[in-house]
Simulated scan of single mutants.
Amino acid sequence: MTTILVTGGTGTLGRLVSERLRADGHEVRVLSRHAQPYAVDLREGGPGLDVAVAGVDTIVHCASSPRGGDERAAAHLIEAARRAGTGHLVYISIVGVDRVPFGYYRSKLAVERLVAESGLGWTVLRATQFHDLLARLFETLSKVPVMPLPAGVSDQPVEVAEVAERLAELAAGAPAGRVEDLAGPQVRTVESLARAYLAAVGKRRAVVNVPLWGAAYRAFRAGGHTAPDRAVGKGTFEEHLARRAARR
């Protein structure tokens, strides 16, 4: 039986990865800031991290925060994995981190480099944005009568369960380096996705496309965060919205 540690294992992605790995018969440890018995803040490290990693065959690193600290967290995790003799580190990244000069993307790219240079066996999977992230964004934007959207930007969202399934598959296998990206089934304008959200929740809002500025916006407009040639995801945004409405 393989022992696998999932960082961020109580989050949107990490929870599903943990469930899938357990269903496949693996022993799974869940690490997060509050999940006992492996409650660890990776940004701080400490002896609790060594306890969590001890005897682990593979680590699936899902923990991440747009508020910063990902590089420090990854460095602590890599050091602990080296001490423990962990054989495989799997990291989930984002499509376009090397093409879009956005702060959070730059941090994810830096972590990719740390993983690749760690001396450990490693695998990196890049995925496009999750359906759930866009739904939560539109929920926030639609709280006012006029819904502002970035003009000229498209997206290619993917179902998080499909990403979890792929990560679990990679974790059970041998280190593979940078694997092929996992992108959603459709590249669609942000406006079309927003209108699909409004229709699903029964809201009427004026939609305004707002031109922005800067290098990151230009890269998003150019589709740097999409992967049309890797449109292997199956679940559509409308299907996700229907399941979301049923749960509520």
Rank of each mutant, 00 (worst) to 15 (best):
11 G>H: 11
34 H>A: 14
161 A>R: 13
184 G>K: 02
51 V>Q: 11
10 T>K: 05
219 A>Q: 02
230 R>H: 14
191 E>A: 12
149 L>N: 10
197 Y>D: 04
8 G>E: 06
201 V>T: 09
224 G>T: 02
12 T>A: 15
53 V>S: 11
246 A>G: 00
164 A>Y: 04
108 K>F: 01
1 M>E: 13
245 A>S: 09
53 V>R: 12
42 L>N: 08
54 A>N: 08
124 V>E: 01
119 G>H: 04
215 A>R: 12
144 V>M: 13
248 R>N: 11
118 S>C: 02
176 A>M: 06
151 A>C: 01
63 A>T: 10
232 V>D: 11
161 A>D: 08
100 V>E: 02
92 I>Y: 06
173 G>Y: 03
188 R>K: 08
209 N>A: 15
19 E>P: 01
216 A>L: 09
181 D>F: 12
143 K>G: 15
41 D>E: 13
130 F>C: 04
31 L>H: 06
222 A>R: 10
133 L>C: 13
96 G>M: 01
44 E>W: 05
176 A>C: 10
229 D>F: 10
48 G>S: 00
213 W>D: 00
6 V>S: 12
107 S>W: 02
41 D>H: 11
194 A>V: 01
147 M>H: 00
136 R>K: 12
9 G>A: 08
128 T>A: 03
202 G>C: 10
244 R>L: 13
34 H>D: 10
78 I>N: 01
147 M>L: 13
172 A>C: 13
175 P>D: 12
67 R>G: 03
151 A>I: 00
219 A>G: 04
56 V>C: 04
185 P>A: 08
68 G>F: 09
149 L>M: 08
107 S>E: 13
87 G>H: 13
142 S>N: 14
58 T>Y: 04
50 D>R: 13
245 A>N: 06
133 L>G: 05
8 G>N: 07
163 V>W: 04
211 P>F: 02
234 K>T: 12
18 S>M: 12
47 P>D: 14
60 V>M: 10
129 Q>I: 07
136 R>V: 06
181 D>L: 04
117 E>I: 01
156 Q>T: 15
40 V>R: 08
239 E>Y: 12
126 R>L: 03
49 L>E: 00
118 S>Q: 00
165 E>S: 10
115 V>G: 08
104 Y>S: 00
104 Y>R: 03
231 A>M: 05
217 Y>Q: 03
213 W>L: 10
81 A>K: 07
150 P>S: 05
197 Y>M: 03
188 R>D: 10
104 Y>V: 00
63 A>L: 08
12 T>H: 13
125 L>R: 01
36 Q>G: 15
106 R>Y: 02
227 A>S: 11
52 A>T: 07
72 R>L: 08
111 V>A: 01
78 I>R: 08
239 E>H: 07
59 I>E: 00
98 D>T: 04
183 A>L: 12
226 T>C: 15
217 Y>P: 03
223 G>E: 05
222 A>Y: 07
16 L>C: 11
126 R>D: 02
37 P>E: 09
180 E>D: 13
151 A>P: 00
200 A>D: 10
23 A>D: 15
198 L>N: 13
22 R>P: 03
159 E>L: 14
93 S>Y: 06
35 A>G: 12
61 H>W: 01
158 V>N: 03
207 V>F: 08
222 A>G: 07
164 A>H: 12
164 A>G: 14
111 V>Y: 01
203 K>V: 06
245 A>L: 10
58 T>Q: 05
115 V>W: 04
84 A>H: 03
